[in-house]
Structure formats: structure tokens, C-alpha cells
Amino acid sequence: MIADRKPMEGAGIAELVIEFRDVQYRLPNGTPLLSGLNLQINGGETLVLLGRSGSGKTTTLKLINRLLVPAGGDVRVNGSSTAAMDVIALRRSIGYVIQDVGLFPHFTVERNVALLPRIEGWPSEKIQNRIAELLQLVGLEKGLGSRYPHELSGGQRQRVGVARALAADPAILLMDEPFGALDAITRDELQREFLALQQRLHKTVVFVTHDLREALRLGSRIALMEAGRLIALLSPDEFLRSNDARIAAYVEAFAGGCDLLASRGGR
């Protein structure tokens, strides 16, 4: 068994934030997408869910904020079962970033970022300060605040998406292939900024990707999924050194022999 439960070195005293206990998920027509998932995610770590399309990584992510409801087992956040929690409160305590960004096209950047604080009834001065703080945090000029999403570049849009997810200062951040649709240079830039951001914020991040380089670069642990099952849970170093045939197969299939270690130079 490769899956190890040891907390990462350097992560301090790891507290359990998200836990999957024998979780099953089936489509309405009965097709199983996820079976027997056991996974523990610690506070402050970046757990990467890695796998091919259809391996169940996005499903796993959506079970955390209950966009999907498990058919069996228990998904727990901060020690309580999500089934027993108010789903709106749960989602508001978790930032959510998706590949297509999903910015509200009829809102300016500022309104996109401020939507949740406004709904939560923050005083307007606090909202204004928060917007300025967030735009700076994700590396956007202040002047962009009054623009509409269609006036932004792909990289800028994704930055706004991250700012919006961070607006109410959630302790958990779910990111579903957030940089997948960007060109290589922008992706590299955003990955670098993500690492810097995570060093400052120490969010508990669950990050979905099929990109091995991205997983190695950003993850503190990598959960490799295949056909709805978790098949390995390792640190990036262990992942590269692993002799497991399935890991080797993924590495080979993805990389085709390109220099993987070089991609970690930015860490």
C-alpha cells in the first residue's frame, strides 16, 4: 500500500481539516464514479488531486462543498459531517475556483470580487478596503476594478477568480484546473504567484489537475486517482522516486520523458 498518512514535514502540527470516510459517488443512472475513497487533508497543505479525465478528481472536489452529494460514506469538514451542515454556510466558508472562471459577465471586476461580502452584509468601507487588498494580492492593477470580465485577458480573469474566492477569507480553497485554459507562460506566472500566495496565506488548498508538472510544483502532497479510486498519496519527491507501476505509467504517459525535475526549479 502506497498511501501514507504521515503529515508533511515542515507543515507544523497538522490538523485534520477535510476528511473522506469510505465515500462513494454514483451518477443518477447508477454508474459509480467514486468508490471507497478515504482521504485526509491537513490544514495549510496543498493537496493535489491528480489524474486523467474521468478519474474522479473533480467529483472528489465537488463533494467537499457539496455541489455533489455522496451516495455513501461521509465527507467531513472541520470535524463535522457536511451532510449535517447548512450547505450555504459551508460553501461560503470555502473558496471555489474553476477552470472556466465563471466570472459574472454583467458585473465589474469589483462587483464580482465583492459579491459575497455584500451578500454577507459587510459595511461598504470594509468591502472597498477588501477589494483593494485582494486586487493587490492577486497582482491586478487597481484600475481594473471597474472593468468587465470580457475586457480582461485570460490570466487577468483567472486572477479575479482567485480574488473572488478569497473575498470572505475562507480557510479552505478548492481549485479545479484553475490554470488549465491558460497559455504556458501565463500558467507559469500564475503558478509562481500561487506558491508565493500560499506561503503567505496558508490556506488548506485542494487542487485538481491532470498536469503532472503542475502537481509536482504546487502540491505538498499528490493524490493520484484512477477510475474513481485513490491509488497513491505521496509527496512530490516520493512520487518521482516511486517504483509503483501505476505511478510510473502516469509519469510516462504524461511526460513522455521530458525533464520533470526542471519544472520544480521555481519552488
Binding site: 462543498n65 455541489l67 450555504i88 454556510a89 459551508l90 460553501r91 461560503r92 466558508s93 470555502i94 473558496g95 471555489y96 474553476i98 472556466d100 472562471v101 465563471g102 466570472l103 459574472f104 459577465p105 459579491l115 459575497l116 477568480g161 473572488r164 474566492a165 478548492l174
Partner: peptide, 10 residues
């Protein structure tokens, strides 16, 4: 994507 982002953010 817009609807999902909205639902996901609560």
C-alpha cells in the same frame, strides 16, 4: 460555469 461558480461560492 457562471451558475456553478455562483452555487459553489454559496
Amino acid at each position: 460555469a457562471v451558475v456553478e461558480a455562483g452555487r459553489g461560492m454559496g
